[in-house]
Design a protein around this nucleic acid. Structure first.
Length: 144
DNA sequence: GTTCTTACA
DNA sequence: TGTAAGTA
């Protein structure tokens, strides 16, 4: 009961989404020919449908295909696009881990422009804030 | 109608 | 990578 804790998703969660190749093409703009080739090269994976041999894709693959497609549209070759996509996903995983522990609170300063102040905790006694505003984004010390 | 594999341009 | 052919 406890080992499955992280797998206990409700049916409607995105992790249980299964997308057919047709929808994958419409959503990402990648052709079926490309999807089969990418899979053949080991860049992406698909789940074989129980009944026929039709492919089914997970939410993770939908995201990955979209990511690869974006890099290809930027001019990267398929191999480079996959490399960039996988690297970025790992970087994001690390960022999520960090934020899960260090992002104590986000104060929204402008809902329209999406500006805010992220409480990143303390470092050597000083409060640290990640600030996103009209100037872009930067770090600030909190006053104490 | 959709998807699959194979093969050719 | 696009497309055509013949299936399931």
């Amino acid at each position: 009961m406890k080992e499955a804790k992280h797998k206990m998703h409700k049916p409607h969660f995105i992790h249980d989404i299964r997308i057919g190749i047709g929808d994958m093409c419409k959503i990402t703009g990648v052709t079926g020919r490309q999807l089969r080739y990418w899979e053949e090269r080991g860049y992406i994976k698909s789940l074989a449908d129980e009944k026929n041999s039709a492919r089914k894709y997970s939410w993770e693959m939908l995201y990955k295909v979209g990511s690869i497609k974006a890099f290809i549209d930027e001019g990267y070759t398929l191999a480079k696009a996959v490399e960039k996509s996988e690297l970025r996903e790992k970087e994001m995983a690390i960022i999520r881990k960090f934020m899960a522990t260090n992002m104590h609170r986000v104060k929204i300063t402008d809902e329209e422009l999406l500006y805010g102040q992220i409480d990143l905790g303390k470092c050597e006694g000083k409060k640290i804030y990640g600030v996103v505003d009209e100037a872009g984004s930067h770090l600030e010390f909190g006053e104490e």
